[in-house]
Design a protein around this nucleic acid. Structure first.
Length: 586
RNA sequence: GGGGUCGUAGUUCAGUUGGUUAGAACGCCGGCCUGUCACGCCGGAGGUCGCGAGUUCGAGUCUCGUCGGCCCCGCCA
């Protein structure tokens, strides 16, 4: 090795030792007769002092510039009285350079590397990602990601899980997410698909008798990107045989509960995780991935206004809808402009309108102040616990639509009022999802999770008669408003699986061609099984307090799924295309 | 596919009602400086105002188009 020690680990106890370091020049302070160099490697920074006494090393220090790669040999010594830098872990000492070898020079970096990088043009950061990754924040994130994955492997190994790899070149399935597709050279006109997840493969591993499987699995989905969605991402994919829902939840909850204090000890979490049904989550938070870091739950205030002659309210109640409300604490005196903005937001989220009602010392404020009878306003206050200074946001609509709009509003208020405590990871379980949801566009039932999800046994009889009422054995892990993981107990019987495909409107021929291998497998002693697949990128993003998953992925893609460093995707040589039997249409 | 927003020096930004040679800070280059640590002081270089049309005597500024970034909706078995 070109180094005997790491820069960031040197301490006062090393004083007197001669060390050889190698790293990058983070900053240079040239005092004419004395040069200080902050030398950086993965472990951190240490100050190297170049003194003219060592003429060669001093000359090298004069020539060195930012991001030059240096090998420094010298003696560790305590800093002089009053020169300790308390902001630096190694700030009590410095290394007096006896020799400085220039291992490589560097052009001036196109982006600053000594800050957190949030303000720097992201496209330039990504183009020079290998430099961007040198910044301390990203080094920390990548290391945290490593520790997280290492913890997962160790934990699951302890619990008897086997890590098993599954193929990347598999078969396209038309439903679900769009596939990334790979042309076959050996078979004209045929294509592989990259896995959206190893779902079927891990179920087949259960049929194969491995009982407990996991994989740090790369998944590819050719869908539009978001701050929390990349075209390729990583899941901790796991599956267990002979397990019920609670067994799966126990494994994952145990993993996360032990992981957090191990890798981010400053973070807090609920233990045990709260469990709520899908219906409850929708009613209380207006979403199936509630942010449980704060309250502001949705309250039904229909009873308070049941006699109201207000158009929207009366219409909603007459047609079986409801009047729902959330309370924004201390916002009663918000300006017209701020309130209008909320109304706009609620409408964008699907509400017909948003009524506001604020309780101020000077009386009622807001759009509903004059439209409601005093006793109605008073009853609303009682039902939702609003007091002086508070603002009620009220939506009258079908219950689901009202909750959905207020759910969106709730997140907006969270951000405006900073309601989410920092360092809280509010994990929770959402269970009892419906099996199907009605697809308006296609005019048929579609699965909510995936077609291998088991219906609840007691709802099997409803499959054909009333699919909308069938609950599934699916469950989600949520955290701080993100869906961190989905899972389910799977179907392990051919007859049940066939009934599900039928409900989804798949023809027999189609089923045989696409899922015949699964159905066949279920006939050879498939054990009851289930599992889930936490999203590693999102989890690490939350652990690292990052605003998007690009910050915890070494080489992420832009919102248009481009890699600006490689300039991918790119066109292929005609020869290459011919070999693959592909002609690009104009 | 739709909506929002942004694009000016290497980076972060300013740029008035359309009007002289487009500015600042950081970074960079040169000089000075032996205790700095965001070192300091002096000097300097650095611009296809994303790109293309148009309006105008004149466009960083106005119009249209286009490309790209980010966020949101749709989409995400």
């Amino acid at each position: 090795m070109l180094k005997t020690r790491n820069c960031g680990e040197l301490r006062l106890t090393d004083a007197g030792r001669t060390v050889t370091l190698a790293g990058w020049l983070a900053r240079r302070r040239d005092h004419g007769g004395l040069i200080f160099i902050d030398l950086r490697d993965r472990s951190g920074l240490v100050q190297v002092t170049a003194d003219p006494t060592f003429a060669d090393s001093y000359a090298a220090a004069e020539r060195a510039r930012s991001e030059y790669v240096l090998q420094v040999t010298g003696r560790v010594r305590p800093r002089p009285e009053g020169m300790v830098n308390p902001n630096l872990e190694s700030g009590e000492i410095e290394v007096l350079a006896e020799s400085i070898v220039l291992l490589n020079a560097s052009r001036t970096p196109p982006i600053p590397l000594d800050d957190d990088g949030y303000k720097t043009d992201e496209i330039t950061r990504l183009k020079y990602r290998y430099l961007d990754l040198r910044r301390e924040r990203l080094q920390r994130n990548v290391i945290l990601r490593h520790r997280t994955i290492k913890f997962m492997r160790d934990y699951l190994d302890r619990r008897g899980f086997l890590e098993i790899e599954t193929p990347m070149l598999i078969k396209s399935t038309p439903e679900g997410a769009r596939d990334y597709v790979v042309p076959s050279r050996l078979q004209h006109g045929k294509f592989y698909a990259l896995p959206q997840s190893p779902q079927q493969l891990k179920q087949l591993l259960m049929v194969a008798g491995f009982e407990k499987y996991f994989q740090i699995a790369r998944c590819m989905r050719d869908e539009d990107l978001r701050g929390d969605r990349q075209p390729e991402f990583t899941q901790l994919d796991l599956e267990m045989s002979f397990a019920g829902r609670d067994d799966i939840l126990e494994v994952v909850e145990g993993l996360v509960t032990e992981l957090v204090p191990a890798v981010v000890p400053h973070k807090r979490l609920f233990s045990p995780f709260p469990v709520m049904s899908y219906a409850e989550a929708m009613a209380r938070y207006g979403t199936d991935k509630p942010d449980l870091r704060f309250g502001m739950e949705i309250v039904d205030v229909s009873a308070a206004v049941k006699g109201s002659d207000l158009g929207l309210v009366a219409d909603a109640l007459a047609s079986g809808g409801s009047v729902k409300c959330i309370v924004a604490p201390g916002c009663a005196s918000w300006s017209r402009r701020e309130l209008d903005n909320l109304v706009e937001l609620a409408r964008a989220a699907g509400a017909k309108n948003l009524g506001t009602l604020g309780w101020t010392a000077g009386g009622l404020k807001g759009s509903l102040a004059r439209q409601l009878r005093p006793e109605e306003a008073q009853e609303i206050a009682r039902l939702c616990g609003a007091g002086e200074g508070d603002l009620a946001c009220v939506v009258a609509d079908k219950a689901a639509a009202a909750c959905r709009a207020l759910g969106a509003l709730r997140l907006e208020l969270r951000d405006r009022l900073r309601l989410a405590p920092p360092d809280l990871l509010a994990f929770g379980w959402v269970v009892d999802f419906p099996m199907f949801e009605w697809d308006e566009a296609e005019g048929r039932w579609n699965f909510m999770h995936h077609p291998f999800t088991s219906p609840k046994a007691e709802h099997l009889d409803l499959l054909e008669s009333d699919p909308g009422k069938v609950m599934s054995e699916a469950y989600d892990l949520v955290c701080n408003g993100y869906e961190l993981s989905s899972g389910s107990i799977r179907i392990h019987r051919r007859d049940v699986q066939e009934r599900i495909f039928k409900c989804l409107g798949y023809g027999e021929e189609e089923v045989r061609e696409r899922f015949g291998h699964m159905l066949d497998a279920f006939e050879y002693g498939a054990p009851p099984h289930g599992g889930m697949a936490p999203g590693v990128d999102r989890l690490v993003m939350l652990l690292a307090d990052e605003p998007n998953i690009r910050e915890v992925i070494a080489f992420p893609k832009t919102a248009s799924a481009a890699d600006v460093m490689f300039d991918a995707p790119s066109e292929l040589e005609p020869r290459h295309l011919r070999e693959l039997h592909i002609r690009v249409a104009e």
